[in-house]
């Protein structure tokens, strides 16, 4: 059992998970379902990154959708204004998100948990309301006014990843594997962070903040590192979202999006490694069902959040660990 480190074990699991997702298009050919899986991979990546912050690093950031949007907007703006291909603008979007997160982290992360949550939430709100109330035209094309940050409509219809030309009717498969690539990077990064040296630092900071401080560990510094890393991958995911949907707009900032992804983390299990992926899948299925029950997805998300926090605070991952611990009583349950 112990021939492999935690890190290696989880990387093996990752390879397996990615292989399964990569094989899915062999069995699923309808474009609608492939599109749903693409969306699942995008939200799973965001949820995994957010969980690294929330569950492992102990940074209660409510600003993740901002970094997602920064990635998306970078692709959108570079596409609309300069006709630059997403292949080039996606990494730029990730870097811009990381830089922005560094600035916000410096300003906020020194503060206590609740302050961090409120400030990051307020900053996202401010940015989104500034963008959607902007009516000053930056360019006007064919009588169509586009503000610098897209205004209330955002950006759409910009250049895609090029698969429509290359693969014709099967273009979505091209996008599918690009998004899978981003998910792979995002998951790998999260595993390296959680099970590597950084994760160790987070655990010691979480166990005893005072002791860790006495050993010369700077909590704020570790928090900022986590904040920037996760923002980079969240931004990258946002960028690939924009490249896939050819859309970036203020609707990304909506409160319901934030709660939806929070739901994935809570349902999957805060502090777990793989929980948010299950959570993302479960929440996507749930929302699909809710749509057919009469458009009640937000109510359902709310109820699911409340029920899980109340009854299963460690999510599906926690419940399954408990079950495993029950089946194999000798093994110490590890979160």
């Amino acid at each position: 059992m112990s021939r492999f480190s935690d890190l290696q074990k989880n990387l093996f699991i990752l390879a397996g998970v990615l292989a399964v997702i990569a094989a899915l298009p062999l069995f699923i050919t309808q474009r609608y379902f492939l599109g749903e899986i693409v969306l699942f991979m995008i939200w799973a990546s965001v949820a995994v990154q957010w969980n690294v912050l929330l569950g492992h690093a102990g940074v209660f950031s409510l600003g993740q959708m901002l970094f997602f949007a920064i990635g998306a907007y970078t692709v959108g703006m570079m596409g609309v204004f300069f006709d630059i291909s997403p292949w080039l603008s996606m990494p730029v979007g990730a870097v811009v998100a990381a830089v922005a997160s560094f600035a916000i982290g410096l300003a906020c992360l020194r503060l206590d948990t609740a302050y961090v949550a409120l400030l990051t939430f307020a900053i996202v709100f401010m940015v989104s309301s500034l963008i959607s109330t902007d009516a000053e035209c930056f360019i006007t094309e064919g009588g169509l006014c586009t503000p610098l940050f897209g205004g209330g409509n955002g950006f759409s219809g910009f250049g895609d990843l090029g698969f429509r030309k290359l693969l014709k009717g099967k273009w979505i498969l091209g996008n599918y594997f690009v998004v899978l690539g981003v998910l792979a990077l995002s998951l790998m990064a999260s595993i390296v962070v959680i099970h590597g040296r950084l994760g160790l630092a987070f655990r010691s900071l979480g166990d005893s903040r005072v002791y860790a401080a006495a050993r010369g560990m700077n909590r704020t510094r570790f928090h900022i590192i986590a904040f920037v890393i996760t923002a980079f991958f969240t931004g990258l995911t946002g960028a690939v979202y924009a490249a896939h949907f050819r859309f970036a707009g203020p609707s990304l900032f909506e409160f319901s999006n934030l709660v939806f992804i929070l739901g994935m983390i809570v349902v999957g299990g805060l502090k777990s490694t793989w929980g948010p992926i299950f959570g993302a899948a479960l929440m996507m299925v749930l929302v699909e069902l809710a749509k057919s029950w009469g458009d009640i997805q937000n109510s359902l998300i709310g109820i699911v959040l409340i029920v899980f926090v109340l009854l299963l605070p460690k999510g599906v991952a926690g419940a399954s660990t408990k079950l495993f611990g029950f089946l194999k009583p000798k093994r110490k349950p590890s979160a």
Partner: peptide, 20 residues
């Protein structure tokens, strides 16, 4: 302190949707 934020966020979106 953190879980109550998650739970009350759930309450918020539930009521917002019901009102909608």
């Amino acid at each position: 302190q953190t879980t109550i934020m998650v739970a009350t966020a759930g309450v918020a979106i539930l009521f917002q949707d019901l009102i909608l």
